[in-house]
Amino acid sequence: MEKLTKKERKELKKQEWEEKLNKEKRSKMLKQIAVWAGAVFILIVSVWGLIQIANSPQTNPELVKLPPITSSDIAIGNPKAKAVLVEYADFQCPACAAYQPFVNQLIIDFKDNIYFVYRFFPLIQTHKNAMISAQAGFAAHKQGKFWEMDNLLYTDQKSWENASNAKEIFIDYASKLKLDMEKFQADLESDEGKKIINEQYSQGLSIGVNSTPTFFLNGVKIQNPRSYNDFKQLVQNEIDKK
């Protein structure tokens, strides 16, 4: 091996040192990239996981005990029907308004094979007219015109959802439905109505209703169907079951 001069040795050392530095720099950068990628990956995975949790049913369907349907419930159809559909809804909720035509169609399509129960679940914290609209529904129910009022409330939801004179609008609906106005106005703010609405609301909460509309088909909470056909199929399955 030939002997290196002092200068050459120095040069070589310098080169080695630079290489080492470069290598260190590179590995440091790689490490940084790995750490950042890892962090982003963990965050993405956890968001995905949370979405899964949020989408999973919160209560075991077997554990949910739907409060029994009583004579004070607002219902339509055949009480002895094979399919009993209970809806917890808020007149001011846009999704409920979107489902209302489905429900109407189900009642028409299944006639005697379905029994539909409407329960109040006014989300009073987000919907300022949720309570008064529920009360209007109750007052109309007192005169046997709940479903007519239900129709008006849902189809005209946009016109009263932010109104400060919602009460007057509902009184106007009542007169359109040719209700006994004195009785309607008395029922509108009666303690009986408030009590029933609040009772249904807290019963709903206790069985895990946490959004509107929430449907129970033969006592089992169902995921809201995406289309009318899906909904119809679900009900049909229940009828075919027995």
């Binding site: 949790i53 949020a54 919160q58 209560t59 999704a95 946490n210 959004s211």
Partner: peptide, 22 residues
């Protein structure tokens, strides 16, 4: 911060699903 992220993101998801947590 990661724990907080899980907590807040869970609520955000539920908010957009129009639901609230148990």
């Amino acid at each position: 911060a990661f724990l907080g992220f899980l907590d807040a993101t869970y609520l955000t998801i539920l908010h957009y699903k129009n639901a609230f947590p148990p």
